[in-house]
């Protein structure tokens, strides 16, 4: 099989996942898109591993091993990610990424910027406490 097939499919899937990460509003949809990207990478790894192990350049099967690891890590990551999304949902009542704008610059006049900063920091500290 021509190597281009899996490689191109992997690239296309990756960019699809990329679009999803950047364009979707709901946090869970973003996580889904991240899974897409991870799977694209996995496909790439497997394809290259099969090619290289056949040409006897590779005896470690590192591609497949890494693919397994990636799958496991992706699973762990989705668990944590969902826990975070749930905590955010509990605190904010929404899972929209658009609404999480705490790092935004406040539109205060000069001189109260530091007040905004301290308010942000204390606010973040409270939220960090709440989610811990």
């Amino acid at each position: 099989m021509h190597l281009a097939y899996p490689a191109v499919l992997s690239a296309l899937l990756f960019c699809t996942g990329l679009y999803g990460v950047l364009a979707r509003r709901n946090a869970i949809l973003v996580l889904m898109s991240v899974e897409l990207m991870l799977n694209a990478v996995n496909l790439n790894l497997v394809a290259f591993d099969v090619w290289l192990s056949r040409t006897a350049e590779e005896t470690l099967h590192s591609g497949q091993a890494l693919t397994l690891f990636t799958i496991a890590i992706a699973a762990a990551e989705i668990g944590i990610g969902l826990a975070i999304v749930l905590a955010v949902h509990r605190n904010r009542g929404t899972a929209d990424i658009d609404k999480l704008r705490d790092t935004a610059e406040r539109h205060d006049p000069d001189g109260t910027d530091h007040d905004a900063l301290t308010a942000e920091q204390s606010g973040e500290a409270q939220k960090a406490e709440a989610t811990a």
Binding site: L18, V21, L22, A23, I97, D98, L100, R101, D102, T103, A104, E105, D110
Partner: peptide, 23 residues
């Protein structure tokens, strides 16, 4: 100060915007 104010407008807080620009 004006330049800074202009630059600060990029700080929308929207993570997706940041990542888009990055990518």
């Amino acid at each position: 100060r004006w330049l800074g104010a202009a630059v600060r407008r990029a700080q929308t807080g929207n993570v997706q915007t940041y990542v888009s620009a990055l990518l």
